[in-house]
């Protein structure tokens, strides 16, 4: 079977999850590669969640929240905005290309945007190929 990118999508329940819903109900085609996890706010996505996703076999992680200024918890997505670039910089040292993690803003009315972010991300990850965490197992953790 040919390889398909596996992407974990953390979607904030107030905006992006509804945006995804809208994309679905409006029948806007989007790639089926994102496994959606609904979170109360994008800031709920701790760095450890993203790391855990890669450790568990994800090829990419997508984090979607409300537009800056629109977070239901006021400050949440600003925290996310600070956290994700630092996390990406660190993950690069682990051999995880920066493009494997994407943070974007999708409101409840942006079904189109949801679909295009998902499609772009899927294509990007397809280009990068599979990511397999090397957990140091096997013959002395040979790479």
């Amino acid at each position: 079977m040919s390889w398909e990118p596996r992407i974990v999508g953390f979607l904030c329940s107030w905006c992006s999850y509804r945006g995804a819903d809208l994309a679905g109900t409006s029948r806007i085609p989007s790639a089926p590669n994102v496994k959606v996890i609904k979170v109360p706010c994008s800031t709920r996505v701790e760095p450890a969640f993203v790391i855990k996703a890669f450790q568990s076999g994800a090829d990419g992680v997508l984090i979607l929240g409300c537009h800056p200024g629109d977070c239901h918890y006021i400050e949440g997505n600003y925290k996310t905005m600070r956290r994700v670039p630092l996390l990406k910089k660190m993950l690069k040292q682990f051999g995880i290309e920066e493009e494997r993690v994407r943070l974007d803003w999708v409101s409840a009315s942006e079904g189109e945007k949801y679909a295009s972010v998902v499609n772009e991300m899927t294509e990007k990850v397809r280009e990068l190929g599979p990511f397999k965490a090397n957990n140091g197992e096997g013959q002395h953790g040979k790479n």
Binding site: Q55, A133, N134, G136, N143
Partner: peptide, 20 residues
Amino acid sequence: PAGTFYRYSLPDSLLRRAKV
């Protein structure tokens, strides 16, 4: 960042090592 945040705990971390 990796060397600062995981100064003592890289092998014990979720990823355990970098993919090279």
